[in-house]
Nucleic acid binder design. Structure first.
Lengths: 203, 203
DNA sequence: TGTACATCAGTGAACGCGCGTTCACTGATGTAC
DNA sequence: TGTACATCAGTGAACGCGCGTTCACTGATGTAC
């Protein structure tokens, strides 16, 4: 936070963060299959061998970007939920809207964070608990629909499957593609309707 | 169907079909990112320039394999539905089980056929109506749950989102990974339960 | 039935591309004294 | 405060890899006559 403007040739100072930022931009502008070490380096204005000092290969870069992606994703859900009152149905529908907005705004990042196979890629991601960032929001918001003493995974599986399926199908244009004006418009209404019928089990 | 055993150097005779078969094997054994023209050619025992006579680039190969994949996928749903009686809930649950069995048996093929973005990749796939193979099964099986005069897309979106979301999340091990013995086991029960509550609108 | 010939489906060598990785190097930074 | 030095984070050249594509070629096939 001092003379970041100097930008001397060596010692970028914050290259790791800059590379992650470059990766995000590449995801937005070029897509997931263009996310390479060399492209990130080029975009950050640094030699292509430089990233090796900060990431353990391309898998490490993807893991770091995923972690940031999960945080952004979680904030989408929280922001949506902060705009509604305490009604359980309003809240569950809100986080689902946040889910879909995120998928629409950041399709490649959405694809990245959900392409990680938790078990098989475990060794590649030492901080694999980072892959659960956001799950707490789903869990908390589902609680009113979970009968006391019952396993919350049932409701969580129902809600998550429903919204995730809609999101992925929408991104591959199975419902005519995302509506840029309102990704949670008419096409999403059937999902909302089903959520509306979830019975509240405790208040 | 004559002397296919001769296998003379030139004129393989059925190379297109052999390359598609090779591609299927590669998907099963090596995964989607190993599906290349050169690998298919090598696996079919042919020079790597040969596929150019049968497919329009790697996109054409993927399209041809997708088409076959959609047919297999559809048969999974039909087979499952043929094993149950006429009860609408039994039938809708059956095609969803078929959906999940297919995803478990052919994860890379599942990934391929659902990675195709229908609109943007349209020009790459002249037979893009082939991308809808299987939708008829969903449509027909959902009919009893659609009120007369209402748009069937509502129920179709609900069922499809639910089962597709579960399938994709399961394949990335979000539910502890697919159970090899019974992919439609306890983890899938919440989805089945939700389907059981779909109201029948006509008989 | 036999022959000439056009067509077609393969071969194999070559090219350029982008990628990850390695390596000797060098300039900047920070610390010990 | 100043100097020596270890450490660290970059550079740039080089390597090998697998990929798609092109191209002249050649052997097999099928048809006209």
């Amino acid at each position: 936070m001092s003379d970041r403007t100097s930008k001397s040739a060596h010692h970028h100072g914050n290259l790791r963060a800059a590379l992650i930022e470059s990766g995000m931009a590449i995801l937005i502008e070029e897509g997931l299959n263009k996310l390479t070490l060399r492209r990130c380096a080029a975009r950050a204005g640094v030699s292509h061998a430089a990233p090796a000092h900060h990431f353990d290969g391309v898998a490490g870069l993807r893991a770091a970007i995923s972690e940031e992606g999960f945080r952004i994703f979680r904030n989408y859900m929280l922001d949506a939920r902060n705009n509604v009152g305490p009604d359980p149905h309003d809240r569950i529908k809100a986080i689902c809207r946040g889910y879909i907005y995120f998928a629409t705004d950041h399709p490649a990042l959405f694809e990245l964070i959900f392409s990680i196979k938790i078990i098989s890629d475990l060794q590649d991601f030492p901080g694999s608990d980072k892959l659960a960032i956001g799950y707490d929001v789903l869990h908390d918001t589902c609680t009113p629909f979970v009968e006391a003493g019952h396993d919350p995974i049932v409701v969580e599986t129902q809600v998550w499957s429903l919204v995730h399926g809609f999101g992925t199908l929408m991104l591959t244009n199975r419902f005519g593609g995302p509506n840029p004006d309102d990704p949670c418009g008419p096409a999403f209404a059937p999902v909302m309707a089903l959520l509306d019928h979830l019975p509240v089990k405790r208040t």
